[in-house]
């Protein structure tokens, strides 16, 4: 069963008929071929699929793509390019805030909200606010350091 939906992904308008059962995650990965967003658990338990929906971090595995009418979605591909990294992306590299890299897109998309959160101004608060993004490699302290650096530099 298909339904028509119109929304934007990284600024591009999507206007298409899609399987009502398709999650935003599967839609952006399989149809739009934006595979930077990862499927870690498919049940809202790991954060690897985090994207921004209307500027707010959100789990794309727990959204039907059909429900995004009129929304604006930003994925990891939409925030920086290899030759023009977002400050967070650069800080993640500098602080070695990943190892295998699989959770990294989700971490960065989640951190995008945290760097703008005035309540997240200590390492402890950042750590709590980033707790919806699991990292089995254990890069947590480095993730906090990367976010802290971007916040303190005021580059965003």
């Amino acid at each position: 069963m298909k339904t028509r939906v119109r929304f934007t992904v990284n600024g591009d308008t999507i206007d298409t008929a899609i399987d009502v059962r398709a999650t935003l995650l599967d839609f952006i990965r399989e149809e739009l071929r934006l595979t930077g967003t990862k499927k870690g658990c498919d049940h809202g338990q790991c954060g690897a699929c985090t994207v921004l929906v209307d500027g707010k971090r959100s789990l794309s595995c727990l959204k039907f793509a059909a429900s995004l009418e009129g929304r604006a979605v930003i994925t990891i591909e939409g925030i920086g390019k290899p030759d023009a990294l977002h400050p967070l992306q650069a800080a993640f590299i500098k602080h070695d805030a990943f190892q295998c890299g699989f959770c990294t897109s989700g971490q960065i998309m989640s951190a995008l909200e945290v760097i703008g959160d005035p309540l997240a101004n200590t390492c402890e608060a950042i750590s709590e606010k980033m707790s919806g993004n699991l990292c089995r490699c254990g890069a947590y302290p480095n993730i906090v350091a990367a976010i802290m650096e971007v916040k303190s530099n005021g580059t965003v």
């Binding site: 993640f92 590299i93 070695d96 890299g101 699989f102 990294t104 960065i108």
Partner: peptide
């Protein structure tokens, strides 16, 4: 040294097995 695979990993460009279609 920073990881040389850092840029693909922070930009979503690193292709894992299920990213191939």
């Amino acid at each position: 040294h920073d990881r040389i695979d850092g840029i693909p990993k922070v930009t979503g460009g690193a292709t894992y097995a299920a990213d191939v279609k």
